[in-house]
Amino acid sequence: MLWPLITLLATVAATLAVGWIVDQILQRISADHPEAPVWALLRRCRAPLQLTVASALLLLTSPLRRIFHLTGDEGAHHLLLLLLLASLGWLTVRVVAAVLEALLRRYETVAGDPARVQRVHTQISMLRRAVSAVIVVVTVAVMLLTFSAMRSVGASLLASAGLIGIVAGIAAQSTLGNFFAGLQIAFGDTVRIGDTVVVDGQQGTVEEITLAYLVVRLWDHRRLIVPVSYFVNKPFENWTRRDPGLLAAVLLHLDHSTPVDELRTALHTRLEQHPLWDGREWALDVTDTTPSTIVLRATMTARTPDDAARLRFDIREQLIAHLRDEHPHALPRLRTTDT
């Protein structure tokens, strides 16, 4: 009884020691090579590594059977084997995630184009989810194969695999469609994390992309959940796919007596004083006329869609205030008599 207990305590001590030693080695390498973030990220694998070491040592020594006086060790041996396989799958997922995140951080330091960084970020996120899903499926499959009942029916399952595959494909047609649509979005560069999109008339920013859906954060902080197949099968607006800059427009319905040239000068003055105008383009044009008003369109550029929206709001307010204070007759009004 004493020797199995000592073996169990030694296994726990060895597990803790291995985890601590590996963590110290990774910490030392990370300090010596700060330009390589992968070593610091691999420290997140400590928990699955310790679980893998513990299950492997318990599987080799089997002290539990002797401590609890188990007559047969098949059940305990099988349970430890399943634990070892699960911990190996968990460790593999953590290692792959650390490597991919390190690649993304390394790319962010050398890439000068924010659009390229967003594209790579989206691709690596989708790749990490796809690889993690494959690892989970393989791990579960290997765990199931350890059961004798599964091996005994293997021949019949293999014989009917074609029929099962057809039925499963039909049943999961929508899920598989979203899966492949997610891969197409990730590597087709149609939409990326951080892009400003318009979906069914609602403007928002892509916050998250998975293999099944996209999360779009709307202007009022609501989250719009959209299947990824939507972005493959239906048209949508992407305002930041190539250039995050945007042309903002303000429409004003004014009286025919409006001094357009003076208002154009006032617009330019206010744009030069506004911090959100990027200095590239601006204009003020008469785009239409009606029997009672003229339609003026003021256009201006901004660096991002959010800046464009705020710039549009501010310029509209300032132009109306200028007309109210300097030329109140230019504001449209309902005429009741001829003057």
Rank of each mutant, 00 (worst) to 15 (best):
9 L>S: 11
224 L>T: 03
280 R>L: 11
92 T>D: 05
137 V>F: 14
23 D>V: 00
67 I>D: 02
142 V>H: 08
267 L>H: 03
198 V>P: 04
303 R>V: 09
91 L>R: 12
221 H>E: 13
160 S>H: 14
102 A>S: 13
285 D>Q: 09
172 A>T: 12
152 S>E: 14
308 A>C: 00
238 N>Y: 05
159 A>M: 13
195 D>C: 07
209 I>Q: 09
307 D>W: 00
280 R>D: 12
110 V>F: 07
228 V>C: 07
5 L>R: 02
323 L>V: 00
96 V>G: 02
323 L>P: 04
132 S>H: 09
164 I>S: 13
45 C>K: 01
131 V>L: 15
197 V>M: 05
295 V>A: 14
245 G>M: 05
181 A>T: 01
12 V>R: 01
311 L>T: 09
271 L>M: 05
193 I>Q: 10
85 L>Y: 14
23 D>R: 09
99 V>R: 09
250 V>E: 10
319 L>R: 03
314 D>I: 07
195 D>K: 08
16 L>P: 00
313 F>K: 15
237 E>A: 05
285 D>T: 08
8 L>R: 06
36 A>F: 15
126 M>F: 06
188 G>W: 03
56 A>F: 10
325 D>F: 00
262 E>F: 01
165 G>W: 07
179 F>V: 06
200 D>E: 14
157 L>R: 10
240 T>N: 00
135 I>F: 03
176 L>G: 01
201 G>I: 05
191 V>D: 02
270 R>Q: 14
63 P>Q: 04
7 T>K: 13
86 A>G: 13
199 V>R: 11
304 T>N: 08
127 L>E: 01
124 I>L: 14
189 D>L: 02
88 L>K: 03
290 T>V: 01
74 E>A: 14
82 L>C: 07
201 G>T: 09
159 A>D: 12
132 S>W: 04
212 A>P: 00
213 Y>S: 15
299 T>P: 01
41 L>Y: 07
305 P>F: 05
74 E>V: 10
143 M>P: 04
160 S>L: 12
252 L>K: 08
85 L>R: 12
71 T>L: 11
188 G>Y: 03
283 A>E: 09
109 T>Q: 15
183 L>A: 11
141 A>V: 12
216 V>T: 01
230 Y>T: 14
13 A>S: 08
298 A>R: 01
187 F>A: 12
300 M>D: 01
296 L>K: 02
98 A>C: 06
162 G>K: 07
51 L>G: 05
251 L>K: 10
314 D>S: 15
268 H>M: 08
46 R>S: 05
238 N>V: 11
12 V>T: 06
330 A>Y: 07
270 R>H: 10
88 L>A: 06
68 F>D: 06
11 T>M: 06
265 T>D: 11
273 Q>D: 14
264 R>S: 10
